[in-house]
Nucleic acid binder design. Structure first.
Lengths: 117, 117
DNA sequence: CTGATATGCAACTCAACGGTTGCATATCTA
DNA sequence: TAGATATGCAACCGTTGAGTTGCATATCAG
């Protein structure tokens, strides 16, 4: 584990696209639905969606590029399913920021208590 | 504290802009820096940045709109600091998705074991 | 084979985003 | 007061993103 207090620049470059992929209402809904109901085809994911099948397809491409979703061919349909590893990547990243924040709070508290300088 | 136990549509509407705000390299870097070094002014955050002071200012507005950052006036400068509550909101949301996924896995396992239909 | 279903591909529109420059305003500080 | 510092505001620009429509292709079911 990286013990440095600074989260490296490469981590930012990795995490930003991940959050960006989650930062769209339609895509977040797709992720949720895959998490709740398991693998599904593009058409089935488009049912009851507020946008066209092609729009859903594009969103799934974005999620796939971000590594959040994987797809396999089955006959004429493409079946998507969630890739939980990337989800925990995002999770881990938020944890790191929270930890940095807690440390900062700790420093502030120590600073106030010792009345240093 | 979260408002609803179910991952509802309103939760999606709440979480998506949050992730969107984190989904930019420059903004993520700002969040990190605030988490690591505590409150800072716009100009100090612009030092060594790859973009102009105005660009940084706009990014801070976005983070502020998302509730991730708060600002207070101090003399002629505006001091920004992190709002950790929203950070844990994002955290909670990812946890909910992970939990849904785990349940789905559980269902799949049960399904296979019982060899039902 | 034929028709229905599932997807892929391409072109296009429109709005939002990230970034810039220029200038105005407010607040210190010497 | 005068100059330097910190920010705000507005206009503008190029790119990307989300969405659409239209059509082509592949696969399944009868």
């Amino acid at each position: 584990m990286s013990r440095s207090s600074a989260v490296s620049r490469s981590a930012v470059r990795d995490a930003a696209p991940l959050f960006a992929a989650l930062g769209d209402e339609t895509r977040l809904q797709l992720v949720m639905r895959l998490a709740a109901e398991g693998p599904a085809s593009i058409t089935s994911l488009s049912v009851n969606a507020r946008v066209s099948r092609q729009a859903i397809s594009k969103h799934l491409d974005v999620l796939s590029d971000a590594g959040l979703v994987r797809s396999t061919r089955r006959g004429r349909e493409r079946v998507l399913d969630l890739a939980p590893d990337r989800l925990s990547d995002a999770h881990d990243y938020l944890n790191r920021i929270s930890r940095m924040w807690d440390q900062a709070i700790g420093r502030l508290k120590a600073f106030v208590e010792t009345d240093e300088k």
